[in-house]
Computed example of a mutant assay.
Amino acid sequence: MEFRYLGNSGLKISEITYGNWLTHGSQVENDVATHCVHAALDEGITTFDTADVYANTVAEEVLGNVLKGQRRQSLEIFTKVYFPTGPKGHNDTGLSRKHIMESIEGSLRRLQTDYVDLYQAHRFDVETPLEETMQAFADVVRAGKALYIGVSEWNAQQLREGHALAKELGISLISNQPQYSMLWRVIESEVVPASKELGISQIVWSPVAQGVLTGKYRPGGELPAGSRAADSKGGAEMISRFMRDDVLAAVQLLEPIAEDAGLTMAQLAVAWVLQNPNVASALIGASRPEQVRDNVRAAGVTLDEATMARVDEAVGRLAERDPGKTRSPEARLA
């Protein structure tokens, strides 16, 4: 496993982060989740990402139970706040001081830890003054309940404003967690340049485009049993944007590129995002331990310019690049 600094900080994280969105407490049983986390630890992954909203808090509980007994100082545990949890009352969502302060306590309890290494705003809250949000995050940091602050899916302007307030308050906003893959490149034109300027790294989710870049979905073919596209608990909806015949046909062109690089298609996809120097880590999820072992082989891989060009030739014309796609909800989901 290779490690990279997260933003302009001294915190090192593993190039591969294990995340449990759509898996723990939802898509896979707890014993399978346990095996997947143990596989991640065995492969040298030290960074684990979750959120209170995943499986309505259950994902945090599962991760906390599995990591219990591990040396805490050897791990980097990340979680997030914003989306509704619990009974989803009028104050059970957003980035108000009330929701942040109550949410961090719940997350720490479920994760069975005294602090998280990174506490992230899961989206930008258009209904709460940013000053209130950042002051609450600053108080969480000063109380020792989080070491650093991050965000997820914030656009360039939101990053600039949040970073400026964090600096005034004496806390470190060091990361953004956006979707990024060969097929989803909306951060490249605005978010990445702003992040480089501010000392913010990307921790990217869905580097394999919800499994599409593995090549297992074929144009006109049946959906593999147990795959995300066949998952009625949320996976199918998220993957639908890529389930077009033109996209699936283009993805098949990646197979010889991966073979020439000595990689599986999934490894090629993860290695591709890690070639971006502003990316500190690629988030992977897994419903089987072997998926963890496969994806982790992308760590430390260098793709040459010719390989990168072949990838662009195969799928680049179909990639979404509109920076306007990097945005937060216009109103809270209450």
Results as ranks from 00 to 15, higher is better:
6 L>A: 08
74 S>F: 13
45 I>C: 00
59 A>E: 13
93 T>W: 00
109 R>L: 12
88 K>T: 06
30 N>H: 04
78 F>H: 10
57 T>M: 14
34 T>A: 12
66 V>E: 05
35 H>G: 07
41 L>W: 02
60 E>R: 07
59 A>H: 08
68 K>Q: 13
62 V>N: 00
67 L>A: 05
4 R>V: 03
59 A>S: 15
6 L>I: 12
17 T>K: 09
33 A>P: 05
67 L>H: 00
5 Y>I: 10
56 N>R: 14
46 T>Q: 09
61 E>R: 10
106 G>T: 12
24 H>E: 11
87 P>A: 10
36 C>N: 00
58 V>Q: 13
19 G>K: 00
17 T>M: 01
99 H>P: 06
4 R>M: 10
22 L>Y: 03
4 R>Q: 14
58 V>C: 04
31 D>V: 10
101 M>Q: 15
55 A>I: 14
20 N>I: 07
57 T>K: 09
53 V>Q: 12
72 R>Q: 02
39 A>E: 05
99 H>F: 15
42 D>H: 10
85 T>V: 09
63 L>R: 00
38 H>K: 15
73 Q>F: 09
11 L>Y: 02
59 A>P: 04
33 A>T: 04
90 H>A: 09
32 V>Q: 04
38 H>F: 14
63 L>Y: 00
12 K>P: 00
75 L>H: 11
43 E>T: 14
83 F>P: 05
40 A>E: 07
60 E>F: 09
7 G>K: 02
88 K>W: 08
84 P>E: 07
91 N>D: 08
100 I>S: 07
61 E>K: 11
65 N>I: 02
28 V>E: 09
54 Y>C: 10
73 Q>W: 01
63 L>N: 03
82 Y>W: 15
67 L>R: 01
24 H>T: 11
68 K>N: 04
97 R>T: 14
83 F>G: 04
16 I>E: 03
17 T>A: 13
28 V>Q: 06
83 F>S: 05
31 D>F: 10
101 M>F: 15
73 Q>L: 11
50 T>E: 03
11 L>W: 03
22 L>H: 04
29 E>R: 13
19 G>Y: 03
51 A>N: 09
74 S>A: 15
71 R>G: 07
68 K>H: 08
83 F>Y: 13
22 L>P: 02
7 G>F: 09
66 V>R: 02
104 I>C: 10
64 G>L: 06
61 E>W: 06
75 L>G: 07
13 I>Q: 04
24 H>G: 03
73 Q>K: 12
12 K>R: 15
95 L>S: 03
35 H>C: 08
93 T>V: 15
37 V>P: 04
92 D>P: 00
109 R>K: 15
51 A>S: 15
54 Y>D: 11
35 H>T: 12
19 G>C: 02
74 S>K: 14
68 K>V: 02
51 A>F: 10
79 T>C: 04
71 R>K: 12
71 R>H: 11
96 S>V: 08
8 N>C: 12
8 N>H: 11
28 V>I: 14
25 G>V: 02
36 C>W: 01
46 T>S: 14
83 F>T: 06
76 E>C: 13
38 H>I: 11
